[in-house]
Design a binder for these strands. Structure first.
Lengths: 243, 243
DNA sequence: TGAAGTTGTCTACTATCATAGACAACTTGG
DNA sequence: CCAAGTTGTCTATGATAGTAGACAACTTCA
């Protein structure tokens, strides 16, 4: 393999190496935490220069798939889903961008009434009728988070059954004519998973969770839904845009 | 789209353009004989320099998918299947790689005896018992070639019925324990289709055919099968590796 | 015949790809 | 502590990718 390949195929050599390593991670040849072969050894197996291997590893590291430790080796990262926190964040887009298949699943939909906090977040009166949706979201077959979502029962009648059919909050809102929405201020805390969430997230008891409270608004700033989500901390990593 | 894309993805820009045009040909947006948009127009639609478009078109032309006519335009070629002649050539892989579905079909299987030529090719004695298989191979629904294959009746008992069931020479050999095989020297000539082949290839009389004689060997060099294939010249194009 | 539009070819420039070698910085294990 | 092995960084070189502009050669059509 040489520069000729790039010329004839239009695919850079380092990309082929990176794809090969990524396939190795994907099909379990290299498990999370494993040490990859040394750069020299990789270079020999792919018959390329060590610098080309480094270019490939750098690309994988930038995506968070591997982590290089000077003097020791390069290791497969515990695969956390990078979850950028922006005003426009869609679970399906984030998970899909990582090459995983996003899925949503309804656990329970029930009527509820607004507490003082919920009423303030949603701009409603205390005791106003709400729909509460408990849902779980997965990447491929791994549960990522469980979330409790509250919507005004008057603005979104039958929201539960719509979510059950569409399995997507974005599509639910679309169904009610909301074309776009933004995430408002997001509060992030951490805690220990409780028994019911542990079962739903397929987590051992005592593991840490990331708790996210957020309210989505339409483009005019009117509150639409407010959520209380619990993420399996070992499976996700929030990225705050620095700028 | 800019040079940044190449850097970040490892896929050359011209490759993306070439793939886009090829997809257009594959899904019928550009039919055989059609004139492609001018290089300038393609450059604008892909937001790329004209030279980059030319690189893409050159790659497609080299594979025989398009043909440029100076002063007039670039046209989609009558689609010939590119058939690389290597030591390891499998009809199904070649056709499958072109996005077409390979099929094989048994016409006739009969007992035969080795002539002097066949005996020499297969390393047998003159008059040794052989199985002769007449088969036709198609891509999608288009007949590509008819071939006559001879095997030793002693080494491959009942080869005819095995081929009828598997419709693949590779699988037939697998059935008899041959895990891999290589093509030896290949003789290529041309001729005019005869009446029986014309009917089988769905060709008008008088059309040219490519005649290929080859013998496959196992990895130890022992002859396995010898073939006499007739390809519809207008539907295929052999690629000889230059190196 | 001539103008417009097409592909072919040339030069020039910058950035990236890939290779090569050397050495520094660091970790691990004896 | 030392040696071996690992990743990080630097310089250097040549080939390729992509952009840019200009002009030649050719075809088509009015």
């Amino acid at each position: 393999m040489s520069m000729q390949d790039t010329a004839s195929t239009g695919v850079a050599l380092w990309r082929l190496v990176a794809d090969g390593i990524e396939r190795g991670i994907a099909d379990g040849r290299f498990a999370a935490g494993d040490k990859l072969p040394g750069e020299m050894e990789i270079a020999e197996t792919y018959r390329v220069n060590r610098h080309t291997v480094r270019r490939a590893l750098a690309a994988l590291a930038e995506r968070g798939l591997v982590r290089a430790e000077r003097g020791s080796g390069t290791y497969v990262e515990a695969q956390r889903i990078a979850y950028p926190l922006r005003s426009r964040t869609r679970f399906s887009e984030i998970v899909g961008a990582g090459g995983r298949e996003p899925r949503g699943q309804l656990i329970e939909a029930a009527d509820d009434v607004a507490t003082r906090e919920l009423a303030r977040e949603l701009g409603l009166k205390v005791g106003a009728p709400l729909v509460r949706i408990e849902a779980i979201r997965l990447a491929d077959r791994t549960p990522i988070c469980v979330s409790t979502t509250w919507l005004s029962a008057e603005l979104f009648p039958d929201a539960g059954s719509v979510f059950a059919a569409t399995r997507s909050m974005t599509k639910l809102l679309e169904h009610f004519g909301v074309r776009d929405y933004r995430r408002g201020a997001t509060r992030i805390t951490a805690g220990i998973v409780d028994a019911t969430d542990a079962a739903r997230l397929d987590l051992p008891l005592g593991r840490p969770i990331l708790v996210v409270d957020a309210t989505d608004h339409d483009l005019d700033g009117k509150p639409l839904v407010t959520k209380h989500s619990r993420f399996a901390a070992e499976r996700v990593e929030f990225l705050v845009e620095n700028g």
